[in-house]
């Protein structure tokens, strides 16, 4: 059974970068898939990868990570400035971040318009069919 946990941005808004990463990683380590409203800062994404690497052991193999973000091709300069300003003040609440434990989520495929989540269970069924 797959468990998806939605995390609204307000839940991580006032946390430090370390706190945000800790919270998301803890949920993932409980074999749940995180659906985070918005996205982490770019530096936090790399910190999440670093923290993941530090915790890999025989039970935890890492994460699958994907961010769906609305089309950034904005021609209107005023809108762009407004969006950046809002992001700076309130954090980046646009889009959706998906973080799944690698033991559950084998791959997240992303085309700009669609997202496909392949689970370890899928690959086992495929293998069984081949046999």
């Amino acid at each position: 059974m797959l468990t998806l946990q939605f995390v609204p941005y307000s839940e991580i808004e006032y946390l430090s970068s370390v706190g945000r990463i800790r919270k998301l990683l803890n949920i993932t380590k409980e074999n749940r898939i995180v659906l985070l409203q918005g996205r982490l800062r770019k530096e936090e994404e790399t910190e999440l990868i670093k923290a993941t690497m530090e915790e890999i052991d025989k039970d935890f193999k890492g994460i699958e990570l994907s961010v769906i973000y609305p089309d950034k091709k904005e021609n209107d300069l005023f809108r762009k400035i407004k969006r950046n300003f809002v992001n700076m003040l309130l954090g980046d609440r646009q889009g959706l971040t998906i973080i799944g434990p690698a033991s559950v989520v084998r791959e997240i495929k992303k085309d700009p318009d669609k997202i496909q989540l392949f689970t370890e269970e899928d690959s086992k069924i495929k293998k069984r069919r081949k046999i």
């Binding site: 770019k42 530096e43 790399t46 990570l65 994907s66 961010v67 997240i108 992303k110 085309d111």
Partner: peptide, 17 residues
């Protein structure tokens, strides 16, 4: 391979930042 993998996007995003 799929170029849209988040690792690629994260690396490039960090370099941009």
């Amino acid at each position: 391979k799929d170029p849209y993998s988040q690792v690629n996007i994260t690396i490039i995003g960090n370099l941009e930042a």
